[in-house]
Structure formats: structure tokens, C-alpha cells
Write a protein that binds this DNA or RNA. Structure first.
Lengths: 343, 343
DNA sequence: ATGAAAGCGCTAACAT
DNA sequence: ATGTTAGCGCTTTCAT
């Protein structure tokens, strides 16, 4: 009880103790731990043995204090829990990030920022100096978070083109415009002439760009582009939008939805209304997620290389961290169209 | 360039500078920052002003070094990315955890441990002294991670009863047995007499207990309990299991699946085989997730209070952190049956 | 190749 | 109520 350690990390051996055990100085142990080459084989072994014997693990706080690095990067997702854990998009991204970061000694840590309160916490966490950099994803409109982090001198990379392009922050995005264009054009080519779209949120570039792609395709084909209903990428919004569209025009024969979830919702509503997919109405989604594979009929969908996007994000961030003055340009990755049975 | 700061956190004002600016000592500033009451109103104001003026933010590394606390707790999910971001179960849990932790000054950080490599990283991270405690979820079989963390003197709480109950670690779980029993009994009461089950992984208590519940219900009703096929909670495994079951016995008229995802897979296979749900075969799932609400017909499912489970996990962990010697007992929360159209 | 020593920025115990 | 001081455990010059 009165022993020298009531504190949590008590008893943990220190550099000092390892040094004593190995009969060398602190500095030498430090060199061994950090893989310096300027250590003789003999001492190297002695120190290693001592480390092993004592079960020494470097104290990060002490190390951070002097190096100013934390070897941790933060993934901030600006969505509510339900969204984050419902959208398969994030899975690929996280995997991609993890893969790439595994090559470095950076550890990935994830935090949600779906509410103001959470955003504030994330900001404080980052400003406290607990991370070397941050990847932000799913930013809406004029989220102040990226700006605040940059102001706090924290390297930041974004997922998805920021709406206000003045930001100048490096970002990675899928070619949403081309993807949407290809999807819409596909509907046209299989014979649809009354093609509607269900958009994503218009405060995100992904939402805006996919709508633009739809428009571009139809303008090129000289089709009408008026059948637009807005959604928020979520399933329920897709159902709502589809109902609205059907009410406005019941001759619709093709639908391009800006997310698989919305497309799935639309398919359900179409069925409720007695429309067969794809015979009466063809449907294309966006994301090529699990959802698309599991609708009935299986859904044709635009694929984005989420995993590669994660890879690129990691690379960009590492670059920013290692060369704070570099401003790597944006990375735009190509999308594809995966043909299944719904269109 | 030769200025005193090329390092990342360079130029950040320190306690010392704030003290100078406010004309007081370091100690006093520290007291203000940490909310000590023993400070006169005057100096309090002076210090606050100085902090404001200089934009001072305490350096966490320095603070951690002396306090031995990080104010961070880790949520470790022992699943692959695809799983984590596909199962809505996690959303509720994370939300519950966040809610409760928001009352404290603990920050939640999430890490995946789906591969050995990731598990190793997580272990190192925790042993490095970067977290005050950890919540582990989705443990399989004899995962060594919890033991290692405990050995490293890190407070740990588990989600789901550990299979080897000798561990003695505090945990939170849903009453899986009762839930499964209620689901199965419901099938019996609506007239099913050939009731099959699709189990979860048998290296997790949730899988084992739900199967036990199925058995208990049928034994009580004197029904046969032989129609068992194994799955892993995932959709594909549900499809596989359903096919297998139909091959073995095509008079099956009720199915209890240990997860919504598997139940959804089963429903699809049933439809493929020309069985109508619930008319020919009634189906009950487990989780009461979004998936259950979106099948056609909507799925009857066992609900677990995931959010409350998250709350309780946080409470347990906080207790463990604040009183390292306390060993709070397990918390088992009740499940319910949500009636929809599939049974 | 190695040791010695000067901090990194903060908290907390002790004085006053 | 406030100042003083001794570290927390580590990295990193600077000598040798």
C-alpha cells in the first residue's frame, strides 16, 4: 500500500532500470530501442536481454513529450453512429487506410463527429496534440472542423471534394460525375426514355456531382432532366423520393439513385406500386455495396474504388506529415459500372 | 528558418509563458487550467485572459507523463472491417458508449482487431500506456487479447459473456438464452411444428447461448431439436445454412436464425425455393436491426438493448478505472421480441 | 561506440 | 491563495 506505486502504470520498468540491468547508460538503451546503428553488437545483446528480462515497454507520453510526435492519426467521420455503421462505404475506406498505414508506424484511431458535441471533442483531442494528422470523411456543407484543425497546425486530408474549393486542402475522391453519367447513359441505352434521379444531399460534393452527371448524360442525349427528387443517401429518403417521383410522373421507366441504399428503397416502393424491376422500371444505384448484391433483383450499380481511396488518403496524409509544406494535389479515382439485373 | 521552432507543435505557448503573461507562477496557471478552487477571482481572470490571448492549449504528453492518465479509452472490435461496418449492432453500442463517456472527460477511440497483425498493434498501443482502459467486443473463442491487456494492467471490460468464464473480467451481455427461447416459442405458438435454427458461431457465447435457447424452448414443448445448421452471423452463411436445412428436411415450417442478417439470407433462399414467408415458413431473426425492418415481409426479431449495453459498458469501465481493485459483476440485460410479418 | 547532461511541459507536494 | 521545486521517462546534443 505504501509501496512506491499506487498509480496505474506503476512498476513499469523504465529506461533507467534497463540501463542499470544492462550496465550501460540511458542514452545507449535509447539508441537500441530506436534502432540506431551506432551500437556495438555486444551492448546490443546485453540491452536486448535486459529489455526482455524486465519486460520493458517505452513510455509513450515521455517519448511524445520530447519528440512532439504521437505516431497516431485520426480518422474523423462526420456522421451519426447509425450512418457510419450502416454504410459499407466506410468499411473499404478504413481497410484501405489501415493497409497503407501498416507500412508505417502510424496507428489509426477512429472518432465520430456526428454531433456538435462530438465535433468539439474531436477538435479538442486533436488540438491537445494527440495526433500527428487527421483524415476527415463525409463532410457536409461548410463544416468548420477541417478549418479549425488546419488552423491548429494539424495536417489534414479530406475524403470527397470539399464544396468550397477555396480550402486548398488535399483530398481524394471518386469520379462521381463520370460515374453518374455512365449510369444514366446506361439507362438510356437500354431503352429508358423517362429517366428520373434520386439525389444525395446537396451539401456534399458527392451529392452535387452525381446529380451533375445525370444531367450531363441526359443533356447529351437530349432527354429531359426534370425528374429530380432529393434524398440524403439513406434508405428511407430513397423510398420517400421514389413515391414523390411516381406521383409526379407515373411513366418513369428508369431511375438513377445516388446511393445503393436509396436505390434499394426505391426498388421497394416500385414493387409496392406494382412496377417490376427492371421490366417496367430499370434502376441503377451507386456504391456497388453489399446492399446492391442483396436486393431482388440484384442491383446494377456504380462502383468506386473505396479501398484504393483509403490507400491514397493514407499516402497523402503521410506526405503531409513528413513534409508539412508540401501540398499534394487532389487524387480523383475512376468509377465503374457493375451490371446486374436491375438495369 | 533558424527560428526556435521547426518542430510540428512549434510555437505553441506553454504554461510558463502563460504564467509570465499573467504575472503569476506556473503552479497557479496549472490550478486554473485544472479547475482548482483555491484561486482568487482576480488571478483567475488574469490567467484566463492570458490563456485566451496566447491561445494556450495544455500539452497532453506532458500531462500524461506526470499524471499517468491519458483520458482515452479504447474500443477494440475483433472483427474485419466489412463486419464492423456492416452490422448495425455496433452502431448502438458505440452510441451508448459515447453517451455515457460524454459525462466524463474520457475520450473514446476505436480500433479494429480483425487480423493478427491488427491485434498486435492494438496490444502494443495499449501497453504503450496510451489508454486508460479498453472495451473489447465481438471476441471469438480463446482470443488472447483480453488476457494480454489485463496482464499489462489495463482495465478491461468485455461485451458478451466470455466463453471461458474463468476469466473473471467484468462483462455486459444481452440475455441471449431467453431471447432465443422466446423466439422459438413464438414460432411454436403460431403453429410451427418443424422448427429449425441457424446458429451463430459456436466460438462465441452469443452463438452458443442462442442455440441453447432454441433447444430449451423445444424441449419444453417436446418438439424435435435436430434441425440445426451452423452459420457465422453473416448473410451468406444464412443462405448456405437454409439451403442445407431444406435439403435435409423440406417440411420445415419455422426458422429461428441467430442474427437478422442470417435470417434475411434464409428468407431469400426460401423464396428461391418457392416457399412463402410466413405462410409456408415463418422466420424469426435476432438483433432487431435495420435489416429486419427492411426485408420483405418485415422480419420478426429478438431485440437487444444495444444502446443500454453501451451505457453499461462505459459505466463498468469507468468503475474499473477509478477503482482498479473493484470487480463489478456482469450485467445481463433483457431481450424482447418485436413482432412483424415474417412470423 | 558510449556516457553525461540538458531539457520536453506539466503536476503535485511542500512552503509560505 | 500562491510560489517553489522536484520530478515524470524519454531523446538528443555534446563530449570523449
Amino acid at each position: 500500500m505504501t509501496s512506491p506505486g499506487r498509480t496505474r502504470a506503476a512498476g513499469r520498468p523504465t529506461l533507467e532500470q534497463v540501463a542499470a540491468e544492462a550496465g550501460v547508460s540511458r542514452g545507449t538503451v535509447s539508441r537500441v530501442v530506436n534502432g540506431s546503428l551506432e551500437v556495438s553488437t555486444n551492448t546490443l545483446h546485453a540491452v536486448r536481454e535486459a529489455i526482455e528480462k524486465l519486460g520493458y515497454v517505452p513510455n509513450q507520453a515521455a517519448r511524445n513529450l520530447v519528440t512532439k510526435r504521437t505516431d497516431t492519426v485520426l480518422l474523423v467521420v462526420s456522421e451519426a453512429e447509425e450512418r457510419v455503421f450502416g454504410e459499407p462505404f466506410f468499411a473499404g475506406l478504413v481497410r484501405g487506410l489501415g493497409e497503407e498505414l501498416a507500412r508505417t508506424n502510424l496507428q489509426l484511431s477512429l472518432m465520430l463527429a456526428g454531433s456538435d458535441r462530438q465535433r468539439e471533442r474531436v477538435e479538442r483531442f486533436a488540438r491537445d496534440g494527440r495526433v500527428d494528422g487527421a483524415v476527415l470523411i463525409s463532410l457536409h456543407g461548410a463544416d468548420p472542423l477541417p478549418g479549425k484543425l488546419v488552423a491548429a497546425d494539424i495536417p489534414v486530408v479530406l475524403t470527397g471534394r470539399p464544396l468550397s474549393s477555396e480550402s486548398g486542402m488535399p483530398f481524394v475522391d471518386a469520379d462521381n460525375l463520370s460515374g453518374a453519367e455512365a449510369a444514366t447513359d446506361h439507362l438510356f441505352r437500354i431503352g429508358c426514355r423517362r429517366i428520373a434521379t434520386i439525389t444525395g444531399p446537396q451539401d456534399m460534393a458527392a451529392g452535387v456531382d452525381r446529380l451533375a452527371g445525370y444531367r450531363a448524360a441526359l443533356e447529351f442525349r437530349r432527354g429531359g432532366t426534370g425528374l429530380v427528387a432529393h434524398g440524403d443517401f439513406g434508405r428511407a429518403s430513397g423510398e420517400r423520393a421514389m413515391r414523390e417521383l411516381l406521383e409526379r410522373d407515373d411513366t418513369i421507366d428508369g431511375v438513377f439513385a445516388a446511393s445503393d441504399l436509396m436505390a434499394a428503397g426505391a426498388m421497394r416502393v416500385l414493387r409496392e406500386h406494382g412496377r417490376r424491376v427492371p421490366d417496367d422500371v430499370a434502376v441503377v444505384g451507386f456504391d456497388d455495396s453489399d446492399v446492391a448484391r442483396n436486393t431482388d433483383p440484384a442491383m446494377t450499380s456504380v462502383s468506386q474504388p473505396v479501398r484504393r481511396m483509403g490507400n491514397e488518403l493514407a499516402r497523402l496524409l503521410v506526405t503531409r506529415i513528413e513534409q508539412p509544406d508540401s501540398v499534394p494535389g487532389p487524387v480523383i479515382l475512376p468509377t465503374g459500372l457493375v451490371h446486374r439485373d436491375s438495369a
